[in-house]
């Protein structure tokens, strides 16, 4: 096992079907990492080591690829992942105020998760829903034409759902 702060609760068996399917297909490293993230919600260090071994890469190479792309996360995320669009149209229509509102409401910044494990915040380049700007996505739902009031309402509703 690796020497870092491993989480021994990670069930690495879950990776086997993915690796059986892709490990020998050249050029599949990103696909494997995407599926690993699909399984665990993030890329645990143990999974990186296992992927490296199965694909014949060094862990450094796998980590190098994973850290290059914004999609990959290295810490568990909250139940609700807020993707806040920072595209041009959203910028022009006030995404900065929306970012500020979320940060104040939840006490987290880009890439962070609330202590209760409920919300994670991630800034993304462009969600492509420019005409509804400013926009955010929470899990699979898109919310458009945001105002600070609307954001407060959405977040408090999600919080209430969990009480």
């Amino acid at each position: 096992m690796c020497q870092c702060s491993c989480n021994n609760n990670i069930n690495l068996e879950l990776l086997n079907p993915v690796l059986e399917h892709y490990a020998s297909v050249k050029g599949s490293l990103i696909t494997i990492l995407q599926q690993a993230q699909e399984i665990y919600g993030y890329l645990p260090t143990e999974a990186i080591y296992k992927v490296a071994e199965a694909t014949g890469n060094t862990p450094a190479k796998v980590m190098g690829v994973a850290t290059f792309y914004t999609q990959f996360r290295f810490k568990p995320i909250g139940k609700y992942l807020i993707l806040l669009c920072k595209g041009t149209a959203c910028h022009v229509n006030g995404s900065e105020t929306i970012a500020q509102t979320i940060k104040e409401l939840l006490g987290i910044d880009d890439g962070e998760t609330t202590d209760d494990g409920l919300f994670s915040l991630s800034f993304v380049a462009c969600l492509g829903c420019c005409s509804l700007s400013p926009v955010m996505m929470i899990n699979d739902e898109t919310y458009g034409s945001l105002t600070p009031e609307k954001v407060k309402k959405i977040i408090s509703e999600l919080k209430n759902n969990n009480n």
Partner: peptide, 19 residues
């Protein structure tokens, strides 16, 4: 997997190859 530079054709090829 989220990298603006992959719109550049040779970067896109690198990404397709899993790098």
């Amino acid at each position: 997997a989220g990298a603006f530079v992959c719109g550049e054709e040779t970067a896109l090829i690198e990404s397709l190859e899993g790098s």
